[in-house]
Design a protein around this nucleic acid. Structure first.
Lengths: 128, 128
DNA sequence: ACAATAACGATAATCATTATCACTTTAAGG
DNA sequence: CCTTAAAGTGATAATGATTATCGTTATTGT
């Protein structure tokens, strides 16, 4: 993979971002620094970074794919009201790969747990 | 919700299907019995059945949404080669809702675990 | 049977994502 | 340091899944 300043900026932008942004969101952010960057370039680079294991792709609610720079094992909580994605530390679940192969014989390369519910913020809003 | 023979057929068709079909797949199946049925009707009914908790929507790999008539707790294994979706029994993981709320205070209404890897069938093919 | 309304079929519109292609940048070798 | 091949880019058209619209039809309670 050859270097490009676009890819460097896209990765840096994702790494500074905690909210599991969509492609469009990253596009808006990088445009501030490289106004001529193309949306296609953002897609291309996020996809290839995910393929090479530098970042992680998360698909859950609301059609649009999101990306996550945190490659450590962890899970996600998606708020069904505001669609925000929260991190959930991995120690709420034991490693499930062994259980899976013991029970089914299947070998998982990766796995994701996605919780859905209403986040603290939205529960407060509801009460008002 | 009013009765319609279209919705009845769509639900019956999904319930007889074990492979977590896409909307298009169900559309093709129900057309055999109701040739004039519209794709929009299939979308409409699958969505409303999922909203009312009669069936379950699963989003994982390969863009297209899939539906699952099995509402009992269980998880899914998606083959990264052939995109088939396999059921994984729930007893490979303890109930994680309690752990989640103990650790984070968040309350999950539902959660899904999606494993990714290569299924038996595709591993055999690989060796040939 | 009748009216109100939910559902339908057809199809246009939308939205996210991917493909294409002419042009530019990167990186390796002479 | 100049050349060149390959990878990357920007612009935009194309695709594919899903949703919205709208005139028509089926269902349901009275």
């Amino acid at each position: 993979m050859k270097y490009s300043k676009q890819r460097e900026l896209i990765l840096k932008t994702l790494q500074q971002n905690m909210i599991h942004p969509t492609v469009d969101h990253i596009y808006e952010l990088v445009k501030k620094e490289l106004p001529n960057i193309s949306l296609a370039t953002v897609y291309r680079n996020l996809n290839s970074l995910a393929e090479t294991g530098v970042i992680r792709r998360i698909q859950g609610l609301d059609n649009a794919v999101r990306f996550d720079h945190n490659m450590c094992n962890h899970y996600h909580f998606i708020c069904t009201k505001c669609n925000k994605v929260y991190d959930v530390p991995q120690d709420i679940a034991p490693d499930l790969s062994d259980n899976l192969s013991a029970e089914t014989g299947l070998t998982a390369e990766t796995y994701d747990i996605t919780f859905k519910g209403v986040c603290h913020e939205c529960q407060k809003k509801k009460q008002n």
